[in-house]
Design a protein around this nucleic acid. Structure first.
Length: 430
RNA sequence: GGGGAGGUCGCCUAGUGGCCAAUGGCAGGAGACUGUAAAUCUCCCGGGUUUUCCCUACGAAGGUUCGAAUCCUUCUCUCCCCA
């Protein structure tokens, strides 16, 4: 690929490759500018909400739709019953059908916020085409097309066989199911491209091979990079290993915004390319800014704002900024209930009875555990000893402290902090 | 079905009758330094309490013993080999 072409002369593929927005292509025939594809992305119903780990593929779907391609989101109502071994070091625990159903509903709603159904995007459930099959009919129609040696050669299989985890037949068969999805979509929806994470390569090629064998059609695959944080594995997980969810009920826009604003320098620019639709010029400007005035954190702030706006909405993003300014803005003095209550619902918070204050029955340790800043009183005690607890921005050093009305920051709210950046609010109501 | 090896505190890993709430690494938390960054250094890291106390924990259930993660029995799960 000529490197000296400027951005507008490049094909979309060249551009995507240059910035590592895509990882692998099954064929150089793929031409995103002059052809129109119907492409699909599969989603596992492992939870009732998508999380930050899904965000990049959703954004890729948006990018492709903008380029004139037609998205199909495939919900794994059937494949979710089996469990994809790709990228998993352990056998998966099977989910019940009811749970899958519940999860599908949640996910489906979220997906529709990213792709435009009114412009032809579809969301389908693969249970619809798997249900009519019997085991026997499936083995006869589809199973015959698969060679065991090829199946064994897949990375996901090899890895597990090499580990002492092993693999059940159920998971081994997974690739056949996903290949069949692609075949079905190819025959019924003219789908000729599958997009997925780089761990999906084996499943995708299983599909393109099956399509070629079964009906002679050409089908393609694109994988997108697996996003890892600079220091290794998990991206989009909280420190305790939980996901940052796209569902505002599970992860408030404030917490979501905080996740992005805390990204490290070495990664922000990359993330701006992945997760926002800012143009190269703007990204270059932020990059300079990052170099010259890193303390301003403009790149992080822009990233956080843009992504929060995309996943939630403008109002949520503005509120997140406001909450951030209030909490991280220096002095908390002079903040009144009105200001604090406006951010109350977005910042992790608890409500406590006012009487517990009046009667002096709430200790600092109780408050920390109730506000979920600490998992146990022992941990809370430890944290205080280490000097990591702040009440209304003042360090608390007495672990036996009992709270009373004088500890309120404003009329009815206390601001609790653990460490440098974890805040919680407690609202004392009658 | 037969034989062998295993299942340890989030992950990996030591421990093979009392010195074991259990070794080491990773991950995680706090502090210092900073910019809500990275790197580095220090401390912490089952639960309940004020250290020396109690509870719960080494796949599950029983048993032997003054005493078990460690020994015995059964069960269960995983890996490997044979049929």
């Amino acid at each position: 690929m000529p490197i000296n072409k400027n951005e507008d002369q490049m094909s979309s593929i060249e551009n995507f490759l240059k910035h590592e927005l895509i990882h692998q292509l099954s064929s150089d025939e793929i031409d995103l500018d002059n052809k129109s594809y119907t492409f699909y992305v599969g989603f596992d119903p492992t939870g009732d909400s998508l999380h930050v780990g899904h965000l990049y593929v959703l954004i890729t779907m948006m990018r492709l739709q903008k380029l004139g391609h037609n998205p199909i989101a495939v919900l794994g109502g059937a494949t979710g019953m089996i469990g994809d071994p790709s990228g998993k070091s352990k056998e998966r625990v099977l989910l019940t059908e009811e749970l899958i159903e519940h999860n599908l509903n949640g996910i489906s709603k979220q997906i529709k916020k990213f792709i435009r159904v009114e412009e032809g995007a579809k969301v389908v459930n693969n249970m619809d085409w798997f249900r009519p099959h019997t085991f026997i009919s499936f083995l006869r129609d589809v199973g015959k097309m698969f060679r065991v040696t090829e199946m064994m050669a897949k990375e996901s299989v090899k890895k597990r066989l090499a580990s002492d985890e092993g693999m059940s037949f159920t998971e081994f068969a997974y690739q056949v199911l996903q290949a069949y999805d692609f075949l079905h979509l190819n025959e019924n929806h003219n789908c000729d491209l599958q997009v997925g994470g780089s761990d999906q390569w084996g499943n995708i090629t299983a599909g393109t091979d099956l399509i070629r064998k079964k009906n002679g059609n050409k089908a393609f695959g694109i994988t997108i990079p697996l996003i890892k944080s600079a220091n290794g594995e998990k991206f989009g997980k909280t420190s305790s290993g939980d996901n940052y969810w796209l569902d505002p009920e599970k992860t408030s826009p404030y917490e979501f915004y905080q996740f992005w604003i805390q990204r490290e320098d070495s990664e922000v620019i990359k993330y701006l390319r992945y997760f926002t639709f800012l143009d190269e010029e703007e990204i270059a400007r932020l990059e300079t800014c990052l170099q010259d005035e890193p303390h301003k954190r403009e790149a992080q702030k822009t990233l956080a704002y843009e992504v929060t706006k995309l996943v939630h909405d403008q109002d949520a993003a503005d509120l997140a900024i406001r909450a951030t300014q209030v909490l991280f803005g220096g002095s908390l003095d002079g903040l009144n209930d009105e200001t604090l209550l406006s951010i109350f619902k977005d910042v992790p918070s608890i409500e406590c009875p006012r009487s517990s204050l009046v009667n002096k029955e709430l200790g600092i340790l109780d408050l920390l555990t109730q506000a979920s800043l600490c998992k146990s009183k022992g941990e809370a005690r430890r944290l205080i000893k280490q000097g990591g607890v702040y009440l209304n921005n003042e360090k608390v050093s007495d672990e036996t402290k009992v709270l009373n009305e004088e500890d309120l920051s404003s009329e009815s709210i206390m601001i609790i902090r653990s460490g440098r950046k974890k805040y919680a609010l407690a609202n004392f109501v009658n």
